[in-house]
Design a binder for these strands. Structure first.
Lengths: 215, 215
DNA sequence: AAAGTTATTGATTGACTAGTCAATAAATAA
DNA sequence: TTATTTATTGACTAGTCAATCAATAACTTT
């Protein structure tokens, strides 16, 4: 019987949670299963987390935090808006923490957000963060179209995620990043007048900025 | 006690399944709950469906079928490739069957695909269908870039879905369709040479066509 | 009307699980 | 060493739920 500090145990349990959710492919993981995977007894999971939902939410926050760190780090290295957009595109996919395990868990957290208000709030935090990062750097490239374009780029990133949650090829990260870059390149090009895919209204942002659940 | 034909009961149970999954926000719906919502006893659900998973898969097929019908119908009305693409963009969102209930259920079926091979297969059917529809009409607009562009458009559609699964505003369908049209317009425009978001390789299709699980 | 057929019921079984808690093992202090 | 504090255990409770099946209700045929 090994004794450890609280923060260490919590981290182990969170890691085990993500691991087991991915292994089972759903949130129907038993606490015993998670505890066993973390190398502790079931009782300890409830000692450090109020209930199973708290454990799930902690895992969400963990993933969100790592993602945020990764983005910030990549952005620090980048200089021009173009470089920064590239950094965002790749940070969303290439990070070591965004491999199969994490992606599968994240997909399940999306469904958690259907019932849990806190999970929904966390998801909005992610969406808003991504959106504002994109808008910030798109401004200088597409001007007032930035929020509108950002919606589509964010949507594309999420959609590609979904795809890779099921596919799970090896170099998925790079491919996805590439796609985002191409979409950005296309969006940054002036629209030709002879394009037949006309848009009836020139409203630059048909969707509200994501600002519903304030922190 | 009312007696009905098999096809009718099956349809009612499937509808109840989608309804209850959406209501609960997860696949953790009890069979009794579904049966009650369909106005029958729990035993009957097991009489018409081998087990709960079969019921879920039947619900997936049902959604997929309705979506396919909607797309085909819209495509019949459309003439030019531009009109057809517009039809696809809107059919994915505007259909009466793609409202809150269905979207929430569909999101949950994505996680089902993490464990169930058959669910995964059904999801691939949807993805492949969407992809080939897009490629077919993109050919005349972007030539050999069609498969590559189709990936992004499909990704965007899926990503916007995800967004609306949680948001649930009223005119979400129209907004999303609009976004897809704009992305299409952007992609159909020639890339300017002075664009700084350069793509290292001019490979027109970095991803394999979705053709893994053959029927 | 009686016998036969088919749809439907709901009580039941057996398995599983979230969360609790009293007991115990390890570390620290006296 | 002994006493005290703190982390950890795992048996246990109370509840849930998938799936079964014998009984029954509703139609059909004779």
């Amino acid at each position: 019987m090994v004794r450890k500090a609280e923060h260490e145990r919590r981290a182990e349990l969170i890691a085990a949670t993500i691991r087991e959710i991915a292994a089972v492919g759903s949130l129907n993981v038993t606490t015993s299963q998670i505890a066993k995977s973390a190398g502790v007894s079931s009782g300890l999971a409830f000692h450090y987390f109020k209930d199973k939902d708290s454990l799930f939410l902690a895992a969400m926050r963990d993933i969100l935090m790592r993602y945020g760190m990764e983005v910030r780090e990549e952005l620090r290295k980048a200089g021009t808006p173009e470089e920064r957009l590239k950094a965002i595109a790749y940070a969303s996919f290439e990070h070591k923490n965004f491999r199969r395990e994490t992606i599968a868990a994240w997909l399940n957290f999306y469904t958690l957000a259907l019932k849990s208000a806190e999970a929904r709030r966390l998801l909005y935090v992610y969406q808003r963060r991504l959106h504002s990062n994109l808008v910030y750097d798109l401004r200088s490239l597409v001007g007032e179209r930035a929020p509108d374009v950002a919606r589509r780029i964010a949507g594309l990133i999420d959609g590609l995620y979904l795809r890779y949650a099921l596919d799970g090829t090896d170099n998925m990260g790079h491919e996805a990043g590439e796609h985002v870059l191409r979409a950005l390149a296309a969006e940054c090009t002036e629209i030709h007048e002879n394009e037949d895919l006309s848009i009836e209204e020139a409203d630059p942002s048909p969707m509200d900025p994501i600002a519903k659940p304030q922190e």
